[in-house]
Design a protein around this nucleic acid. Sequence first.
DNA 1: GGCTACATATAGAGAGCCTACATGTAGTCT
DNA 2: AGACTACATGTAGGCTCTCTATATGTAGCC
Lengths: 115, 115
Amino acid sequence: MNPDALRGHMDALLLSVLEREPLHGYAIIEALQERSAGALSVPTGTVYPALRRLERTGSLASEWATVGGRRRRTYRLTDAGRRQLEAERSAWREFAGVIGSVLRPDLGPGVRPAG
Amino acid sequence: MNPDALRGHMDALLLSVLEREPLHGYAIIEALQERSAGALSVPTGTVYPALRRLERTGSLASEWATVGGRRRRTYRLTDAGRRQLEAERSAWREFAGVIGSVLRPDLGPGVRPAG
DNA sequence: GGCTACATATAGAGAGCCTACATGTAGTCT
DNA sequence: AGACTACATGTAGGCTCTCTATATGTAGCC
């Protein structure tokens, strides 16, 4: 997976895995792997700064917890975060539609869609 | 359309519009607009450097022409470019599948796909 | 002379993702 | 004890691509 392709879609991914339940950074990385059937291995250097960015802009909120002697920072969606997630979803649908329509193999001048 | 989202997909778009016939930069920009029903307005400062990059890496070749007193640099796909286009298409399909599967609305623990 | 469309090009800014590194706990194996 | 792995967070710096802004020039219309 070309890293550049993820650009601008990271926020959507993070918000999406936090939709059902709050998670901490490490668990978010695992959740992304699971949901993508192993295709997404997002490094910590990407995820942690992105989570802080989303908290700073008000889409996420976090609390510290200690579990089994280890410190975790657990993130949850705010109301603004839920609204942003919906916006990201519709932006993705539009984006995928546009790219898909441009990328669709060019069948040549004699061929057109059935209709 | 968030500019960051285009990151890493520009090459695919350019190669794709050049698949059927060679075009010069200005015409490529118009073709992108047409194929995307007006959604893609890619600025010249993006397209021209990207075309040169693709030529430098061997996916495109170009020739100068003068039409109506104006100079054009016309780009065409090389064999390597056609191979790259196929690779970009399958990369896009994979990418869209992965993002889509992560973004799919989380319906909660009690809901699962029919089957 | 001024405006728009056509046509190419570059410099510099901006932003985000990645690599690499730093730090620390808990548990297992030898 | 020592080494290693899994768990867990964080930052600094680099890289690359896209965008904005600007420059240059022809052709045609008013």
